[in-house]
Design a binder for these strands. Structure first.
Lengths: 234, 234
DNA sequence: TCTGTTGTTTGCGCTAGGGCAAATTCCATT
DNA sequence: AATGGAATTTGCCCTAGCGCAAACAACAGA
């Protein structure tokens, strides 16, 4: 762990309200791991031996069903925790965590969770706050899936992605990691084909610009109109 | 608070590992509230002034969307906490909690959460465990909504309901509170009509027995077959 | 430069299930 | 018993979007 890392890490919301010395104690016990694109940080059903903090890269959390479907639960951006199953009383990971780009993560043995949360109350408070908002997100997803049509869901998904990992370019806002049409489909509960058709249609209208594993949102505002469901339906 | 209540309450999983004296301190600070059927325990967007423990009855947690859709997030059975938004760092309730039957709940002012979780570590640990499994449930819902068809989802919903609130009768397993076809629809992301059609079809096959606001599952095993998606599709 | 592989696009047909509308049944009240 | 309102059932039509299949890029490695 280079000290360079520490200064960056100190600013993360998970560590808000934690004294520098304590932070050192926490970080000192982490292993730093490099995970190549498409490699897994952890696997569904596996014993939850560690919890992680994503320092760099992007991770896709995917649930696999017995019948072979894959559903993307969420994307993780740098600064977020992942694999905190153990903090919630689980002993196995509930999903696969796959590097959407080359990643650097910090890993702590699960049993340290108890120690940390006892010694550093802000740490557990911050974590549970994050869990709370994930629960909210999940419930919103359920609501979306129940009430919106595919077009709106895909629009919402793109908006979330650019909010989380958008990068300004001359063309528009680029999603800052490789993402396929298939990935979009797995986020929104549709098929590769429908996702592709939608993206193509939007590209024709100048709303987005696509590419192989690449999506650039040109007009976020018009995308929002679609997401909100107020479309003229030409 | 009658002492009668205390002995029942002591057995609840939320209070596991808490000394009797501590339990008294906790319960002593609760108000006991009676909520009539169709009345609300709390309302979406309202300030989260309290958190609750359901002692008797059944509560439906429903999210209302701006465009008038209602999505049932979960049903709460006696012994479960609800309205714990504040424990997760939220200041407003994220949904409506509606009594599906006449209820008795204990209510604590939200600010007591911090006190309790500091003084009684088991209490917060138990709570977060519950939050963890709700997060799991929510993710499962997302997966179901993404990969299963309506028939399977409705079957799953009924199975969950009888597991949570099933009551054996001569006819079969009765869902122990009034539940309409509309309610089933809002749980599964479909319409009243489709839900009704499914229930009728199942009734013809002797799988369930319906009634006004009443569902009795006659053959849980066959329902499970449908839920798992291994149907011959006659 | 060529070639195989992986991601993307698109056409076409089909069906699950939503929307609408009208009966029908059940229950609570009078 | 009669009345009115709410829950339920059902028929019919219609479309969003899935499945299949086939073409088409774009990139990686030889």
């Amino acid at each position: 762990m280079a000290s360079l890392d520490r200064s960056l890490i100190a600013g993360l919301s998970v560590f808000e309200g934690i004294a520098a010395a304590d932070l050192d104690r926490i970080i000192g016990q982490a292993r730093s791991i490099r995970v190549a694109r498409d490699q897994r940080v952890f696997e569904q059903e596996q014993e939850a031996h560690s919890f992680f903090l994503l320092l760099d890269g992007h991770v896709r959390v995917v649930k696999s069903t017995p019948d072979g479907h894959e559903v993307t639960v969420r994307y993780i951006s740098p600064g977020e925790l992942l694999g905190i199953a153990s903090a919630l009383g689980r002993t196995t990971y509930p999903a696969n965590a796959i590097a959407a780009a080359d990643c650097v993560v910090l890993a702590w043995p699960s049993q340290l969770w108890l120690t940390f949360s006892a010694s550093f109350p802000s740490f557990s408070a911050n974590t549970y706050k994050a869990v709370g908002s994930r629960l909210q997100d999940a419930h919103s997803r359920v609501v979306e899936m129940s009430t919106e049509q595919v077009e709106q869901r895909v629009a919402h998904a793109l908006l979330k992605l650019i909010k989380q990992s958008g990068k300004k370019t001359e063309e528009g806002i680029l999603i800052d990691f490789p993402i396929s049409r298939q990935d979009v489909a797995e986020m929104t509960g549709t098929t590769l084909h429908t996702a592709s058709r939608l993206l193509s249609a939007w590209e024709d209208q100048g709303l987005v610009k696509g590419g192989r594993q690449k999506i650039v949102v040109v007009e976020p505002h018009r995308l929002l109109v679609i997401a909100e469901g107020r479309t003229s339906k030409s």
